[in-house]
Nucleic acid binder design. Sequence first.
DNA 1: TTGTAATTTTGTAACGATTTCAAAATTGAA
DNA 2: TTCAATTTTGAAATCGTTACAAAATTACAA
Lengths: 139, 139
Amino acid sequence: MKTIEKYLINSGIKPSYQRIRILSYLMDKKNHPTVEMIHKELLHDIPTLSKTTVYNTLKQFVEKGITQIINIEDHKTRYDADISTHGHFKCLNCNKIYDFRFDNKSLEISDIEDFDFLQTHLYIKGICKKCKYLLNNKN
Amino acid sequence: MKTIEKYLINSGIKPSYQRIRILSYLMDKKNHPTVEMIHKELLHDIPTLSKTTVYNTLKQFVEKGITQIINIEDHKTRYDADISTHGHFKCLNCNKIYDFRFDNKSLEISDIEDFDFLQTHLYIKGICKKCKYLLNNKN
DNA sequence: TTGTAATTTTGTAACGATTTCAAAATTGAA
DNA sequence: TTCAATTTTGAAATCGTTACAAAATTACAA
C-alpha cells in the first residue's frame, strides 16, 4: 500500500481514489491551490470529478487536521497540506505565494497573554525578489 | 470642520455624508465589522443607505490606505480603520475578534530575506480568557 | 457469488458575499 | 440658475461555496 494511503487511513479517512489524487496533488505541487485549480487540473485524469467532491474532500482534510486553510486572498480559500507552522508571502506583482519559516517562539505578543493559542497564521504581502529585480530594470 | 472630515480630505477622499458616517462607525466601534454589520447598523440613521455604497466606500478607504482588510474569517471580509501594525485574535468559542500588539522587529523570518514587505497580517485563533474560564467551570 | 446496506461521488439548485452597471440624486462651479 | 461632474442607489449578474438527493461504488453478510 502506498504511503499516501497509509497516511489517509492513519488520519481516519478512507483512501478513495479521489481523496488520494487530491491529497497527492496538494503534496506534490505545494502550490497553495484553490478548489478551482485542483478541480481543473485533476479533471484531465478524472473526467467525472465533481467540484463538490473537491470541496467535500478538502473540508474533511481540514477537519482531520491534514490540511490547512490559507486566507491570504480576499475572496477565495487556498489549501496547504503542509500543516507545520509556517508563513505565507504573497507577491502583489506576480501573485505567487511563497512559504517562509518564522520563529514562533521569538514572537513577542501583548494584550492576550492568558488566551489559548490553537492556530497561528502569518501572512505577509509585498514584492518578491524576482519582481523587485524585474521592476527595477524595466526602465 | 470636524476632524474626521479633515482626515478624509487629507487622504484624498471627498467627505460625503455616507463616507463620514461609515468611517465614524469604524473608528468608534473598533469592532472589525463586516459590510453587513455596517449597513445594518447605519440603516437606522440613513434609511436610504445602499449596500453598494458601503462596498464602494470601503473599497476606496482601502485603496487610499485609511482602512485595512482583515481576512481572519473564511468567507467574509472584515474591515479595520486602525491601520497600525497589530494582530487579530479570533476566539473559536465566542467568535469575538480581539486586537493585540506584537513586536514586528522581533519577528525572525527565514527564506524571504530579500523580499519587500508591505503588509504584515498576523491572525491567531484559539480560546479567549473569558471563554477559557467559562468552559472550565461549566461542569 | 449475490443481495443489501453503508459510503462516496456526482450534478443541480440554492445561497451568500461581492461586483457591475445604469439610472437617479446630489454637489459644485460657472 | 444651469449644467456637468460626482456620488448614491437598487437591481441584476457573478463568483465561490454549500445543500441535497440521486447515482455509483464499496463493504460485507448470507
